[in-house]
Amino acid sequence: MIKFENVDKVYANGTRALDKVSLEIEQGEFVAIIGLSGAGKSTLIRTVNKMIDITAGKLTVNGIDVSTLKGKELRKFRRKIGMVFQSFNLVLRTSVINNVLAARVADMSLIRTLLGLYSKQDKIQALEALDKVGILEKAYSRADQLSGGQQQRVALARTLAQNPEIILADEPVAALDPVMADVVMEDFKRINKDLNITVVINIHHVDLALQYADRIIGINAGKIVYDGPTKNITNETLKMIYGRELTEDDLMKEKKND
């Protein structure tokens, strides 16, 4: 369970990215965080694994107080939390399987990491992760030969290879075309249902959020303005989250019709 209690994040330049945020996310939920860019979505997601430190309040994940974690303990904590990024963040000059295996090095010794000596168990785990996102056949291709959608699925496989309990995704489909975006969102949904992994996803496109998530958190200027099941979302709530009428930019499917 992820639990925010009155969490603040104020950056060094004075920007208040999170303002008294309180929320609870149960294991196995599929949560979409929506809001304008700059509303604090990215900050919110990155505080969960302490890629960004909070400045006030209390944040616990499975009972662990995140802000007290340091060094080795922090690294151990992060192993259970996967992260997927907008720009995929793959090493393009190496093979797909090496990218996925990179998620295993946290558990390996430095010398094995240096020599690239992965155990058989690690290799199987990496290949199974690729199988789960349906690109097992690309295992030995170089990452830069893959399309954007395939690259994001490699990134997803890399996250799966670390056996996470939680997956945090920061705008995972923003760089993809609508068709690939659907495929990747389906992957997230399946992983969430089959493996009971909590998925917290930042997403700019409202239509995708409504289609795939069970629960929506709307955030505006660092404050939570809506938190509830997807089915209760109305046009009024969306207007409140975005502070304006929705535009074509906020929807991905509209673009598909162009």
């Binding site: 399987i97 020599l115 690239g116 000596l117 290799k123 290949l127 199974e128 097992l136 295992a139 030995y140």
Partner: peptide, 18 residues
């Protein structure tokens, strides 16, 4: 052909460090 592809068959193709 990709249907016959299994984790096991891909594992055998893993480049050896030897």
């Amino acid at each position: 052909s990709s249907k016959q592809l299994t984790v096991q068959s891909q594992l055998e193709k893993f480049p050896s460090v030897l």
